[in-house]
């Protein structure tokens, strides 16, 4: 088993009396795709928001690259190499695709407190942005306004922006939600390429996609870990079937 890039220890997030994430201890191995699945309200999105720093844990620990990042802010985590995408479009609706990806790429400059030289002169930013757009099949769409893209293209742009920040850990929040069959296939193909050599935490409802691209799967129910294992183990587990897949056991 490769070393864990990311580790949570008894990670907990309470909203009042409700523990949305309740004592989750997981290790995410470097270079692997680890899916987190579960019924609606299982705490998957909350878990991801804790990992990206958008929510503060009320208990437990998060370790990334051996450092305690339990209380780290989203911008610090991003700078440490944590990239994420969002379930619903969370772009810069008035900017062009090119400018959205530019902003993502520019974030890797040591600082953007640069007041005098025109932004275009920072050539390495432009190169990084163009590469990310091309990777995600948006090379021709650089001038299109983000808010006017199709749903599938917005997902591609989300992924391009994440890649432009050169992350080592990817947090993907339901990248296929709301997509038609063909669009979903295209995104799955893109995700497969993106995942190569990177560590991925994937929250997703589409079971076919999850089982086809994940190396391991964790099932969350009511904020707790029900099971963790390889896709085939999870598929075969009666407990998972009963609690989550909702199927009669044959």
């Amino acid at each position: 088993m490769p070393e864990a890039l990311l580790q949570t220890g008894a990670l907990t997030r309470r909203f009042g009396a409700l523990a949305a994430v309740d004592g989750v201890s997981l290790a995410f191995a470097e270079g692997r795709v680890h899916a987190v699945i579960g019924p609606n309200g299982a705490g998957k999105s909350t878990f991801l928001n804790l990992l990206s720093g958008e929510l503060r844990a009320t208990g437990g620990l998060i370790h990334f690259r051996g450092a305690d990042v339990t209380r780290a802010t989203p911008d610090r985590l991003s700078r440490m190499g944590v990239g994420r995408t969002y379930q619903t479009a969370n772009l810069f609706p008035e900017l062009s695709c090119g400018d959205c990806v530019w902003l993502a790429a520019q974030s890797r400059l040591p600082s953007s407190m640069l007041f005098f030289r025109p932004a275009e002169r920072y050539a390495q930013v432009g190169v990084r942005a163009a590469r990310a757009l091309e990777w995600c099949g948006l090379a021709e769409r650089g001038r299109a306004i983000a808010g006017q893209l199709s749903y599938g293209e917005q997902r591609q742009l989300e992924i391009a922006m994440m890649l432009a920040t050169e992350p080592s850990l990817l947090l993907l929040d339901e990248p296929l939600a709301g997509l038609g069959h063909d669009e979903a296939l295209r995104i799955v193909e893109l995700l497969r390429r993106v995942a190569r050599g990177r560590t991925v935490v994937l929250v997703e409802h589409d079971m076919d996609a999850v089982f086809s691209i994940s190396d391991s799967v964790t099932v969350l129910v009511d904020g707790r870990v029900l099971a963790t294992g390889s896709p085939s183990e999870i598929r075969a587990s009666p407990a998972v079937r009963e609690a989550y897949l909702g199927e009669e056991i044959p």
Partner: peptide
Amino acid sequence: RGNDQRMRSLGYPT
């Protein structure tokens, strides 16, 4: 101006 929260998640201490 466009999306403050997203800027933070891209690594900018806004």
